Lab assay of single mutants.
Amino acid sequence: HNGKLCKLKGIAPLQLGKCNITGWLLGNPECDSLLPARSWSYIVETPNSENGACYPGDLIDYEELREQLSSVSSLERFEIFPKESSWPNHTFNGVTVSCSHRGKSSFYRNLLWLTKKGDSYPKLTNSYVNNKGKEVLVLWGVHHPSSSDEQQSLYSNGNAYVSVASSNYNRRFTPEIAARPKVRDQHGRMNYYWTLLEPGDTIIFEATGNLIAPWYAFALSRGFESGIITSNASMHECNTKCQTPQGAINSNLPFQNIHPVTIGECPKYVRSTKLRMVTGLRNIPSIQYRGLFGAIAGFIEGGWTGMIDGWYGYHHQNEQGSGYAADQKSTQNAINGITNKVNSVIEKMNTQFTAVGKEFNNLEKRMENLNKKVDDGFLDIWTYNAELLVLLENERTLDFHDLNVKNLYEKVKSQLKNNAKEIGNGCFEFYHKCDNECMESVRNGTYDYPKYSEESKLNREKIDGVKLESMGVYQILAIYSTVASSLVLLVSLGAISFWMCSNGSLQCRICI
């Protein structure tokens, strides 16, 4: 991952900044910058967002509201009850120091605090018919004063009620008058409520006091790749198909172990950190130390980045220098085999997901714990399936590479015959000098055995068991695999060879 928040398929997220979902939807004055928000790819909250409900109280069923919003990608904020005409018999300019803005008392931008007009609070009834052709999110509140005197001074009615009804919602609220500790300079409380109004449905408000009335509502448009994440990451000019709280993932790998919460087309989250597919040879310690064997393909974004291909070729060293050249036929066979294998694994496992966190309130801790156990169970199954699949494929890959290298080895052996000696570690020792032209003939299969047989015969008789390297004779190393990324691999195959001279070296080696 890149540690950044990015656009998702070209669409920017909605960053709530210092506000949370509650503050944004109710219209906390400190969240005025969010009022123009219309569309987004996903919503970003920060872990310690401080601006929620400015007048103390709870947004009821907040967790369910977050779940609903996680599939919303755009909205239209509109005046559901026009301020100047909807409440002619009531005062609608209630403000509070708890919702101060720029040093002055204020109130929510989407709600109206209705109080008595003169000395009376006549029963009010108002309704709205949803003609938007889509779901409408309606929010309101109920004020709970701290004393009967406060109730009387604001609403005149000691036994007030609030009723809200639609086809799918029907509740009646009565204020709970009680002494409470002071929070944000208030002994009173406000509880906030919401409902989704279906197209064509009607919502009716009736009250004799204590109503925090809707002013603006939201017509919602769903987008199934949307979601809500909690993150401290910063926004950058970048684009992605998959976003996590820790950063964007741009990967076609089937798995990731970065974060379980994802938005967009994302690899499946697994616990494993070692889900690797081999593309090189079986481990040979001396070669492995030099980083030549054991190439791997990573299938977990965050564990290993991208696929690494092994390729086969020849390396030689003689009086004229040293050089490398790919054996294109065996390399292409290996590439085709690995590509098919990788595609097979991805096809089997690479279903892209959006995974969002589930919200539970403080009273639902047991449910949250149960949900976590269920999620953990599914996660263990996914991890096991992934590891088992790759384990089985790896064994076949190792066998496949062994065969490829063996074929190259036999190709060289059949040409050199007794003009060189096998020394048991995949290397041959020449009994004759071999210049670049000679080396090329070994690589392309045109090695002239009779041409060098007499010199080889004489050297075999002279050496008589002495280690060949100390006599200045020449080696050919018969097994060799270097490691390159897919891009470098293609470039390498396009070149005939490249040279690395070893000044004054008397050794001649050709490596497979």
Rank of each mutant, 00 (worst) to 15 (best):
F293K: 01
I512W: 01
N385Y: 06
N350H: 11
V270S: 03
V270F: 01
E469P: 01
V278S: 10
C266L: 09
L487S: 11
T482V: 14
N283H: 08
A326D: 01
E455V: 10
T305M: 00
N336F: 09
F378A: 03
G264I: 06
L490H: 00
S492K: 01
H259F: 04
K457I: 12
L468I: 14
E347Y: 02
N250Q: 11
L253M: 05
R366S: 06
D448N: 13
V261H: 13
N385K: 09
T354A: 07
G323R: 08
H315W: 11
S272T: 10
C427P: 09
I263H: 02
P285E: 11
E422M: 06
T383H: 11
K467C: 03
I335N: 04
I308L: 13
I381V: 15
F299S: 03
H316L: 00
N340F: 08
I463Y: 02
V442F: 01
I476V: 04
G302P: 02
G504P: 01
A386L: 10
N444S: 13
A233K: 15
V483N: 14
M471S: 08
L363I: 12
L392D: 03
V261Q: 12
N333Y: 08
K348S: 09
Q352K: 08
S344N: 08
P245K: 06
Y409A: 03
N404L: 10
H316Q: 06
K241H: 13
S456P: 00
G321C: 09
N444I: 15
A386Y: 03
T273F: 08
C266R: 07
H432K: 12
G465V: 05
L458E: 08
E301R: 04
F498W: 08
K467H: 15
N425H: 14
G504H: 12
R366H: 09
N283S: 03
A295N: 07
L477R: 10
N318Q: 06
S272F: 05
N407G: 06
S251Q: 08
D380H: 08
M439A: 01
F353D: 11
L477W: 06
V405M: 11
Q328V: 14
G303T: 03
L398G: 08
Y409C: 05
I510S: 00
Y431A: 01
T240M: 12
N340R: 14
K421N: 15
P267G: 13
N419E: 03
Y447W: 15
S330P: 01
V261M: 14
K358H: 13
A334R: 05
W304S: 03
T305K: 00
G306S: 11
Q507G: 14
L292E: 05
W311G: 06
M235F: 14
N232W: 10
K417T: 14
S470G: 08
P285A: 12
S456T: 15
N385H: 10
S231D: 01
F299P: 12
F498P: 03
E387G: 03
L281W: 10
A297Q: 03
C438H: 06
L477Y: 10
M277Y: 03
M471E: 11
H236V: 12
K358G: 15
T240C: 13
K358E: 06
E440W: 12
V342Q: 12
L458K: 11
Q320H: 02
N362F: 11
E265H: 14
A295L: 08
D327A: 06
T331M: 07
M235Y: 15
R271A: 11
N459A: 07
I300A: 04
Y431I: 07
Y312E: 03
V345H: 04
N333K: 13
L275K: 03
E237D: 14
K462P: 11
I258C: 13
Q352C: 09
R282D: 09
N350W: 04
G306A: 15
E461I: 15
V261R: 09
D402R: 09
F360E: 03
Y409M: 10
K241P: 10
K329D: 10
E454H: 08
L408R: 07
V405W: 05
T244W: 04
E359A: 12
L468H: 02
D399E: 08
G472D: 13
M349P: 01
L281Y: 05
Y312A: 01
E461L: 09
K411D: 06
Y384G: 06
V278F: 03
E301Y: 03
S485Q: 07
A420F: 15
H401S: 01
T244R: 02
A297M: 08
L487M: 14
S251D: 02
A355M: 15
A326H: 02
M307L: 15
I512A: 13
F255K: 09
G247D: 03
I512K: 00
Q352S: 01
G247Q: 09
L292R: 01
N333H: 14
E359M: 02
L281Q: 06
C438R: 02
Q256N: 10
G337S: 15
K329G: 05
I258P: 03
I512S: 04
I463D: 00
E429S: 11
S485H: 01
E429Q: 08
C242R: 01
Y289T: 12
Y312P: 01
L398Y: 07
H432I: 05
T339W: 01
W304F: 06
Y452C: 07
Q288S: 09
L392A: 09
K241E: 04
A334T: 07
N404Y: 04
S470H: 14
W499G: 12
N394K: 13
F255Q: 07
T305C: 12
G280M: 08
S485M: 00
E347R: 11
S330Q: 08
Y312C: 04
V405N: 07
Y324W: 11
G321K: 03
K433T: 12
E410C: 02
R443Y: 06
V390F: 11
I335L: 14
K413F: 10
K451A: 11
G472C: 11
S505V: 12
N361Y: 07
G313L: 02
Y324T: 05
N340P: 01
K358S: 14
A420P: 02
M307Q: 00
Q475M: 09
D327G: 06
N394Q: 11
L468G: 00
E364H: 09
A326I: 07
Y314R: 01
G321S: 10
E237A: 10
I476C: 13
S441D: 05
K373L: 06
Y480M: 09
V342A: 03
N407E: 09
Y431E: 05
R290C: 02
T354V: 14
E410P: 00
R276D: 01
D380A: 12
T354G: 06
D435R: 15
K451F: 07
Q415V: 05
L403N: 14
L416I: 15
T279Y: 07
L487I: 15
N252A: 14
I296E: 03
Q317P: 00
A355Q: 14
L389V: 13
S486Q: 06
I463F: 00
E347G: 10
I338R: 02
T354R: 14
E440T: 08
E455C: 08
Y384S: 14
K433A: 14
I381W: 09
E454F: 13
G323V: 12
E301G: 02
G302F: 09
I263Y: 04
R509W: 02
G424I: 01
N283L: 04
K341H: 07
I512Y: 01
T279W: 11
G294E: 07
T446I: 15
F400T: 08
G337V: 10
N250Y: 11
S441M: 10
N318M: 07
S234F: 08
K433E: 11
N362W: 14
H316T: 15
L370P: 11
I308Q: 09
E429D: 15
P260G: 06
G280I: 06
L468V: 15
M471P: 15
Q352V: 10
T482Y: 00
A295P: 03
L379Y: 12
C427G: 09
G323Y: 11
L363M: 14
A355F: 08
T331A: 04
C434Y: 05
L370Y: 06
N343Y: 01
D327P: 02
K373V: 08
H316N: 00
T331F: 01
G298M: 07
N503I: 05
R443E: 15
R271S: 06
Y314P: 01
C427Y: 11
T244Q: 09
K274Y: 00
I249F: 06
I496D: 05
